[in-house]
Structure formats: structure tokens, C-alpha cells
Design a protein around this nucleic acid. Structure first.
Lengths: 194, 194
DNA sequence: ATAATTATAGACAATAGTGTACAAAACCAT
DNA sequence: ATGGTTTTGTACACTATTGTCTATAATTAT
């Protein structure tokens, strides 16, 4: 009945994701964005309300490839602490091999967050909350499985882990040395000890 | 003999610092920068080579007010570990009271770093190196004063501390809750234990 | 095939940003 | 007070970016 879109929304959103990832929300103009997405500005304005809307979809498309995604797929009974440690060491490994050293989309854009941009702040806060809850839920399981002392403050550890993760992603942008990054992560693992 | 500058270079650099701090290097145009500095663009181009040059001076002017500045003034014999802990708790306290939630100038701009901008990358890497060395030097003293086991990998702990600090500064932008931030820092202090 | 509907191309006017260039202004050593 | 020197104001030509608007293109239900 109506003319169909020439582009695949998912694909162009991934293009947008990579651009926002590399340059950050503020440094990307709508012009550049549309160009990178491979669509005209008119198509852009027609299909997306504005930069914010795209960014929201972009963050959603980042989640499955974010460093903590593997924790989502942890099955009951799977050892938790080793999975968390592996996640950190994978960050050290993976961030270093990116020739563009983009770091983490979330970290980069929280750092560049303009507090006057309420929608952006909202998007980022909500996603961070989700990640904290993910960490917390796996930590609960760790305690249940006897991997972690029940004395621990799980909320605090969850937030600590996301803090450490953010710090590591940041460091990777100026210190692309896997060994060094891993030694940082190892220091951070003291938190699991009794 | 020659017409003197109408502006105080130090003062306008501080204005520039606050703008770069709040918005990040990439999001600041020369036009806006000059305006915020209170000088005309012609004065700007006349007195500063370019944005990069200003940014270099800006970072220099940030160091004395950066979160780790207090460690510079530690005297021999002063307890080190308590000073480091205090530094972290001060970050939690201070970042929260900033209504603009600017976070940390260094963290923000490393996150927004475009790897193609070699001069910027260089400026930021060098400063990070300085901070790591500062941490390391006070940790050496901590060991000397019996505050820390000589078994510890001081370089790794130094980098860990800067990582944690970066993470905290980042978190403060989306979680302006002092108690929460402090509980994160407390978790991080496990690194000092035997 | 046609009508209805939506996507896209292209143009538009307006604003913002770039770096440079030149003349006017302001100082101070002599 | 004048000359030499540097700052500063203004203007320039140029490019980038914005959001909107209109005409054309592409589809499908009937």
C-alpha cells in the first residue's frame, strides 16, 4: 500500500551505534549521522524523531554486545565469580584489540553527558541501573552457591564492579596494554575475598 | 612598548577549563570558547595557537584542583593509606555537591578522546602517566612506613587506584549519592589488605 | 490500472562556525 | 609626543549544519 523503507532499521542503527561509540553523542551532527547511516537527512527526519531517539535505540542495540552481556546468559548452577572474573579479563583483552580504541559506549557517553540534556541523562541512568541489577542478581546467586560470604554488601559490590568496569574501559583508551589492564583487574578481585 | 593584553591569561584559561570540563573538548567550538573566555575570536587566535593549545594549558590548570592534588602535598612521615582513603571519600563528597555534575575533566576528555587527534591523546596520556607515578611514589612510602605489605605490586595498585578513581568520577555523573559512592570506595579499599 | 500511502531526493532559507586579513587602538621606551 | 609594537575590533569569504517543505518515486490493496 505504501512505499517501503529502502533501509533496514536495525542495520542503520548499528551504523549509528558505531559512530556514537567512536565520537560520542555531542560530537556527532545529524548530517554526519545520516551520512554514516547511509540514508538521506530527509529519510532520517522522517523515520526518527531526532538524535535522542536514535541514541535510545543505539544504546539498546549496544546492550547485547556490551561487556556484561555474558552475565545475562549465566545459567543457574554456573559458577558466578569465575564468570565475573572472565568478563573483566575479556574487557582487558577486547578493548585492546580495537584499533579505534573506542572504549565503552556507555562510559564514553556518560562522561560526555550534558546535565541539561534530561532525556539523555534518563536513558543512561536507566541502563546503568539495569546493569547494576544484573550484577546484583548474579551476586545473590554466588552467595547462594557458597562462592561468596553472606556477610557481603551485595549492592555495594555490584556498584563497585560497574565502577571498576567503567574505569577499565576508560583506561583502555590511553593504555592499550592487555597485561597492564589485567593486572589492574586482578587487584580489583580482592573484593571477593573474605 | 606594545599594547598590553586586556585579559589575564590565567583567568581566561580557567574559564576555558570550566567550559571544557562541562562540555568536553569536542563539543566546544572556538566561537563558544572565545565567548566564554570573554575575549574576541581575533584575540583568541592571536594569543593561542588553537583549541589544542588552550586545552593543554587547561589541563595544566586542572592539576592543582584535581582529586589527587592533595597527595602531592603529603610530607614524609605522613600516613599514606589514610590520605589515599580520604582522597577517595572526598571525591565522593565533592562530586556530589557540584550542581552541574561535571565529574572529572581528565576522565571526561579521555572518554571523549578521538584517537585520530594525536596531540590530544598525547596530552592526556602524559598527564595520566604523571598521576600514576604520583600514586606509585606515595605507595612506595607507604611500604617504607610499614603501612603496606612489601609483597604488593605497587605499579598495579597505582593503576588500580586511578582506575577506581576514574570509575567513581564517572558514576558520580549518573548517581549523585554520596553514601552510595562512599560504599563503592570502601569496597575498593580491600586492595590494601594483606 | 488506479488510488492511497509512505519513502526519498533535492532544494530552501536561516544560522553557526571557520580561519584570515586589515585597520584601528593602546601602550611604553626613548 | 612619537614610533614601534602588539592587541583588538570588524569584516570577509567560505563551509557546515539545521529543520522544513515540495515534488517525485515506489509500493500494494482494491
Amino acid at each position: 500500500m505504501a512505499r517501503p523503507q529502502k533501509f533496514d532499521r536495525k542495520k542503520v542503527t548499528e551504523k549509528a551505534r558505531d559512530l556514537f561509540w567512536k565520537k560520542g553523542y555531542n560530537a556527532v551532527s545529524v548530517q554526519e549521522l545520516a551520512q554514516e547511516m547511509g540514508i538521506s537527512r530527509s529519510s532520517f527526519y522522517n523515520s526518527f524523531a531526532d538524535k535522542d531517539t536514535v541514541f535510545d535505540e543505539v544504546v539498546a542495540s549496544y546492550m547485547p554486545i556490551s561487556p556484561c552481556a555474558p552475565l545475562e546468559h549465566l545459567k543457574p548452577g554456573d559458577p558466578v565469580i569465575p564468570a565475573i572474573k572472565k568478563m573483566f579479563l575479556d574487557i582487558c583483552k577486547n578493548k585492546v584489540v580495537d584499533p579505534e580504541a573506542k572504549g565503552c559506549l556507555m562510559v564514553n557517553n556518560i562522561a560526555g553527558l550534558d546535565q541539561n540534556n534530561a532525556p539523555m541523562k534518563d536513558i543512561l541512568q536507566k541502563r546503568m541501573q539495569d546493569i547494576i541489577e544484573l550484577f546484583q542478581s548474579v551476586l545473590v546467586r554466588a552467595v547462594g552457591q557458597g562462592e561468596l560470604s553472606p556477610e557481603k554488601d551485595l549492592k555495594a559490590i555490584a556498584m563497585y564492579l560497574i565502577t571498576l568496569q567503567a574505569g577499565l574501559c576508560l583506561l583502555s583508551k590511553v593504555c592499550p596494554d592487555e597485561t597492564m589492564l589485567c593486572s589492574i583487574a586482578e587487584q580489583g578481585f580482592h573484593v571477593f575475598e573474605d
